[in-house]
Design a binder for these strands. Structure first.
Lengths: 159, 159
DNA sequence: AAATAATAGTTTCATATGAAACTAATTGCA
DNA sequence: TGCAATTAGTTTCATATGAAACTATTATTT
């Protein structure tokens, strides 16, 4: 069959299309979560991701954050600049290689961080409230597989 | 315990945080899919969503698309303008209420549409390739529940 | 029938984004 | 050593986005 000779009936139910559903869900979840941290602390999505990375890896470099927070280097650069302005993060240079920054949260940064972590865990708990343990495990396994599959796909662009 | 007196050990593994995982997955899937339609047809995400909506509901208005494609009215307005420029969509006015537009794909629009639908279905099939029928069903049920939960949450903003 | 409110859709404007160009520092190699 | 290549991070620029203001039309009130 030629490309332009398919029957008109070849339609697609947008609401059943997985990439669409993932986009809609991720956006709704992200927006709802953003309300909890954005309104209270005045930080952006990129900024809390940076903070979460610093919470696990103090003294790390911006490149480390790039690799562990699914942000590109422009986003990390800007997020860190903003966090420094807010005095939530401090930056020094690595004396052994002065290209590398050494990032850490300030005392105030840690204070805010612990609050956001608590909000995040409560948010997540509420989000999965309706799922049984088994459903939750199945979801996590499926998301894992999907991410593996898309990263293995020829269309995938790193970071 | 006071807010700022939590132990430093209150950290969060970003990679396990569901909102983060959903964002990363949705972005990767969306970008990979965008490569298949974007490079071949030169249309945007909002534009194929409009086309998918028109594929199911010919003669519909822009408002209908807003409600069925998870796009705001600005996005729909721009996407439709672009599709009209590309001669993939034609617009008339509803004579009964001249505020309403009446949107339809052109012959060429339908031709492109059928190709994208085929690409979309193949893409989705490849995406879920690693999931069993049961896993796929569980995923869909979980996504459904999560969307219901977030839409019911106080932080949810409509559209 | 005005006057007012509401709805469909567009445009404006201020901000967000990311690719590419850039600076600074280090490494590798002739 | 000195020059090319690489790496870390920043800035620029062109495009994407969405809230708010706007236009045009229809519905509702007085």
């Amino acid at each position: 069959m030629k490309d332009d000779a398919a029957p008109v009936e070849t339609t697609l139910q947008l609401h059943d299309f997985l990439p669409y559903r993932l986009a809609v869900l991720a956006k709704a979840v992200g927006a709802a979560f953003a309300k909890t941290y954005g309104e209270r602390f005045g930080i952006t999505n990129a900024q809390w991701r940076v903070m979460f990375a610093l919470g696990r890896a103090p003294d790390c470099s911006a490149s480390y954050v790039v690799e562990h927070a699914a942000l590109d280097k422009v986003q990390v650069s800007r997020a860190v600049a903003g966090l420094i302005d807010l005095r939530l993060v401090a930056r020094t240079q690595d004396p052994a290689d002065r290209r590398n920054s050494v990032l850490n949260m300030t005392t105030e940064g840690w204070r805010i961080y612990r609050q956001i972590v608590r909000e995040a865990l409560a948010f997540e708990e509420n989000l999965v409230e309706g799922l049984s343990e088994a459903e939750n495990a199945a979801l996590n396994r499926a998301l894992e597989k999907l991410l593996g599959q898309v990263r293995a796909s020829p269309q995938h662009k790193e970071q």
